[in-house]
């Protein structure tokens, strides 16, 4: 009772704030919580004609089929590896860029670099993939360069060993500038007195970076890393679907692309819903453990 009156009171007092929050809350309710209902088809043999409720319950059959399927281990391995490489190389990249930009003295140059580096973020993934395919195809720019230096032309997209490199490096190119914005914002919030004090104490540029800049960035790095780990099982599957070929499935086929092929292409909605659910559960578990670890290590987590 008490709580109810408290809420009512709070609502009366902050009416406009609640009103402002309403669209966001509704958005999450409608687009993120309501569809969870549909996840029950993972435990059914969903037949569109019978509807979600009318379809037969099959328990964990769909999960069983996936875990014992021929591709399970390969899909898991590919997903984790691509994700791991993306974090390993992709996570530090924007931090480095932000640090470098922060040291620049020439305003115009800094702005040009910033604009140039985050432009690719705005290009649709279809176009990005098209550009990539043109650049690295056998008669593309990259191979022209190789041929100029006397090397053989290679159809990079046709061989499994190149796929991860292509995927990860192109993602870095696409996202590095955009990712650096948040670090630049954090950098601008550092108290300049710290640097002045350090200068008086005789610290050079590198020492200033090491003892002032980087430690100031650690909390935000921790949060971003935790959030990133929450997506370990999700790989940007649109780009994968656009870039992979049967010959590169061996390294390129990930859980998300398999769901796409099985679900939308193969009409196995229940099966793909089960795989999707599995993926989400693992993500949740990873996110939670990353949060706990971070909390224990440096006291800041997600909540």
């Amino acid at each position: 009772m008490k709580a109810a009156t408290a809420i009512r009171k709070d609502f009366a007092r902050h009416k406009s704030i609640y009103l402002m929050a309403a669209p966001v809350i509704l958005y999450y309710l409608i687009f993120h919580y309501t569809p969870i209902y549909g996840a029950i088809i993972a435990f059914k043999n969903f037949q569109p004609a019978q509807g979600i409720w009318g379809s037969k319950w099959v328990g964990f059959d769909q999960f069983d089929r996936f875990f014992h399927g021929y591709y399970f281990w390969r899909l898991l391995k590919n997903t984790l590896l691509i994700s791991l490489y993306s974090i390993l190389f992709g996570f530090p990249a924007p931090i480095l860029l932000a640090l470098l930009l922060n040291e620049l003295r020439m305003r115009w140059f800094k702005r040009v670099v910033q604009t140039v580096t985050y432009l690719p973020h705005f290009i649709s993934v279809i176009v990005i993939s098209g550009i990539l395919i043109d650049f690295i195809s056998r008669d593309g720019l990259l191979n022209d360069l190789f041929a100029f230096f006397g090397a053989d032309r290679v159809a990079f997209l046709a061989f499994p060993q190149y796929f991860r490199t292509i995927f990860v490096s192109s993602s870095i190119w696409q996202e590095v500038g955009w990712g650096s914005i948040i670090y630049l914002a954090a950098l601008s919030a550092i108290n300049p007195e710290l640097y002045e004090a350090a200068k008086i104490d005789g610290a050079g540029r590198f020492k200033q970076i090491r003892y002032i800049t980087i430690p100031s960035l650690v909390p935000i790095m921790a949060i971003l890393l935790i959030l990133r780990i929450g997506h370990v099982m999700e790989v940007g599957f649109e780009k994968i679907i656009l870039l992979y070929r049967p010959t590169t499935y061996e390294t390129a086929d990930v859980i998300a692309s398999y769901i796409y092929r099985e679900g939308l292409g193969g009409f196995n909605y229940s099966y793909s819903a089960a795989i999707g659910l599995f993926q989400s559960v693992v993500n949740l578990a990873l996110l939670y453990s990353a949060h706990r670890i971070s909390k224990r290590m440096n006291g800041s987590g997600l909540w």
């Binding site: 305003r107 800094k110 702005r111 910033q114 985050y118 914005i181 630049l184 914002a185």
Partner: peptide, 8 residues
């Protein structure tokens, strides 16, 4: 930086 951010 702030100006850069505005542009961004």
């Amino acid at each position: 930086t702030r100006k850069g951010l505005t542009v961004a």
